[in-house]
Every structure is written in structure tokens, then in C-alpha cells.
């Protein structure tokens, strides 16, 4: 493995007594697409801010592109692109000026940054909105502009904090396509998300974070293999009957999970388990056999109760 571009070991961030990030360790290889997956408040954004060299760590070690962010913040930030969770585009500037001014913050000469801005507008499919006000853009357009802005300095690492939260499906797919192209070009991507499909689409490797700690690490496929089964059967008998039926289907599949509204049966052969259920004379109102997804892994690791 080539030398890692990000190395974190026992990275910790405490606010008074509360540990937002509690001793996490990971490495990111150049060109890799790395995901931090976790519920709200898991410590993803705090980790991203430390990696982005805008937040100092309480303890542990962190190296970005071979440098310590506590000592070389500006040098590190010069080589990063940051897409924050909430858009912080410059409302007082037009779309193209947002890119130019941002490039100037990196000290890029005026002529070069003007050329770069036009390339980025093209890439973000915003060329025809160059002179628009930021306020007049749709949510998806704002997000693409934020990503274009993060690319103005041709960064070695692109940090994306929940890049598609709040976007409609079309906007998400356009964004994924753009991010995938960057990945193909060799840009290292580090992203946080709580969308499982996003993690499966974009991440080569990910860590599941909960309460500031890493719960699991691996490729999406490996995590599914390790923490779930190949398929999942979802059956519904009506919320009153589910618990009663659960006793009757004991022994079917590798693992059964009873939820208020449905029963999940984890198995490598979903169809076979479903016919076994029907053979026992139980007729579910609805049934579904599906591939296991990261969501199953995620919920198994971080639990189903609402975390707030």
C-alpha cells in the first residue's frame, strides 16, 4: 500500500467532559474513496473538521499529507477541498465570482483562477448560471457550486460532509456522477454520510462510527458479509400479530429480528426461508426478499433506537 495521505491514531476531541471523537484510528490511501458512516452526533463532522485542519485535537495523532495539522494548518488547507455540511457560499457574490474569490484566498493568480472558474462551472453544469445570484440557485445547484468551489485549488484530498443531505433524487444522482468522475481521476475522497446507498455507491472502504468510536471497518461488501447475511426477508403480519408469529417461525434463517411493524429474517437464501414460512401455514400480509444492504449493517451496529 502506498503511503497514506491521512493517518489518524487514537484521535480524540473533547468538549469539556464530553468526548465527541473518542480515540478513533484509520488510514486513507491516495486515490481512495473513504467514508465515515454514522448516525447524527456520532462525531463524523468533528472528525472531518480535524482532518480539514480547522479544529485542533485534544489527544492522539493525526497526519495529513505527511504534515501535523497543529503545526502546518495553512500548508495542509492549501491542498484540501472542503464541502461543509451546510453551504457557506458567499451570498453577496455572483456564482462565478464565488469561485474566483475563493481561488484568490489560496493565492492563485487572477488570470489562472478565471480560467479555472470557467472549467469548474462547466464541470458542475453551471456555465449558464455564471452571473446568477447564489440565492437564486436550487439546492442541488448550490451543492454543485460548493463542490466546484472546493476544487478550485486542485486539491489532493476532497472532504465532503454529508454532500447530498436534503437533495432530491435527481440532484443526488447528478452529484454522485460528478463525484465518481473525480474519483476516477484519482482524487482522494473522504466523505461522511448517513445514506447507505451513498456509501455503497461512492466508498471503497468505510468505517461505521457511533458515539465517537469506530464500530466496524471494511469495504461495503465485506461489512455486509461480516455483519449481515446475503439476503433479508421482510414479512408483515400486522402490528398486533407480529410478536405472536415470531414464536412460530423460530429457527428459520440465521437470525430473526422482530420490529413493531415487521419481522426481518436474515438468511443466505431468502426465497427458501419465505417458502418455509408459508409451509408452516403462516400467511404474511406482505413479503419481500431483498439483498442485504449497508443499512442492515448500520442498524445492527448502531441500534434502532432514536439517537438525539
Amino acid at each position: 500500500m502506498p503511503e497514506a495521505v491521512i493517518t489518524a491514531s487514537l484521535l480524540t476531541k473533547k468538549y469539556k467532559d464530553f468526548a465527541a471523537v473518542d480515540g478513533i484510528s484509520f488510514e486513507v490511501a491516495p486515490g481512495e474513496s473513504f467514508g465515515l458512516l454514522g448516525p447524527n452526533g456520532a462525531g463524523k463532522s468533528t472528525t472531518m473538521r480535524m482532518v480539514g485542519a480547522v479544529s485542533t485535537r485534544t489527544s492522539g495523532d493525526l497526519t495529513i499529507l505527511g504534515l501535523d495539522p497543529d503545526l502546518h494548518g495553512p500548508e495542509i488547507r492549501a491542498q484540501l477541498g472542503v464541502v461543509p455540511q451546510a453551504d457557506n457560499l458567499d451570498q453577496e457574490l455572483r456564482v462565478r465570482d464565488n469561485l474566483i474569490v475563493y481561488g484568490r484566498y489560496f493565492g492563485i493568480p487572477r488570470r489562472q483562477v478565471a480560467k479555472r472558474a470557467d472549467e469548474l462551472l462547466e464541470f458542475a453544469q453551471l456555465s449558464d448560471r455564471a452571473k446568477s445570484r447564489v440565492d437564486d440557485l436550487s439546492g442541488g445547484m448550490k451543492r454543485r457550486l460548493t463542490i466546484a468551489r472546493a476544487l478550485v485549488n486542485d486539491p489532493r484530498i476532497l472532504l465532503l460532509d454529508e454532500p447530498t443531505t436534503g437533495l432530491d433524487p435527481q440532484a443526488r444522482h447528478i452529484l454522485w456522477d460528478r463525484l465518481f468522475r473525480l474519483k476516477e481521476q484519482g482524487t482522494t475522497l473522504v466523505l461522511t454520510t448517513h445514506y447507505m446507498d451513498e456509501a455503497e455507491q461512492l466508498c471503497d472502504r468505510l468505517v461505521v462510527v457511533d458515539k465517537g468510536k469506530i464500530m466496524a471497518e471494511g469495504s461495503p461488501a465485506a461489512l455486509i458479509k461480516q455483519y449481515s447475511t446475503r439476503e433479508v426477508v421482510e414479512v408483515r403480519f400486522g402490528s398486533e400479530k407480529n410478536a405472536k408469529v415470531a414464536k412460530l417461525i423460530k429457527g428459520i434463517g440465521d437470525r430473526i429480528e422482530v420490529l413493531p411493524d415487521r419481522i426481518l429474517i436474515y438468511s443466505d437464501n431468502g426465497e427458501a426461508e419465505l417458502s418455509e414460512i408459508i409451509k408452516r401455514g403462516l400467511n404474511p400480509i406482505t413479503s419481500l426478499v431483498r439483498r442485504s444492504s449497508l443499512e442492515d449493517v448500520f442498524l445492527r451496529l448502531t441500534g434502532r433506537s432514536l439517537i438525539e
Binding site: 494548518g73 495553512p74 492549501a78 484568490r104 489560496f106 493565492g107 476544487l151 486542485d154 481521476q185
Partner: peptide, 27 residues
């Protein structure tokens, strides 16, 4: 465009004083 041209050395090398290094970029 489907690919974004990468431009080597877009960001000038950081020339900064040791003393104010982390708070001042001369920009």
C-alpha cells in the same frame, strides 16, 4: 466536459514567516 483538467501547481508554494506562519498567509 466529463473530466476536469488538473493544473499542476495552481496554488503557489507557501512563503510565510515562521513566526506568524499559522495565522498569516500574507494574502
Amino acid at each position: 466536459t466529463t473530466t476536469l483538467p488538473t493544473s499542476p501547481a495552481l496554488v503557489p508554494a507557501q512563503t510565510r514567516s515562521r513566526f506568524l506562519g499559522s495565522i498569516y498567509a500574507g494574502n
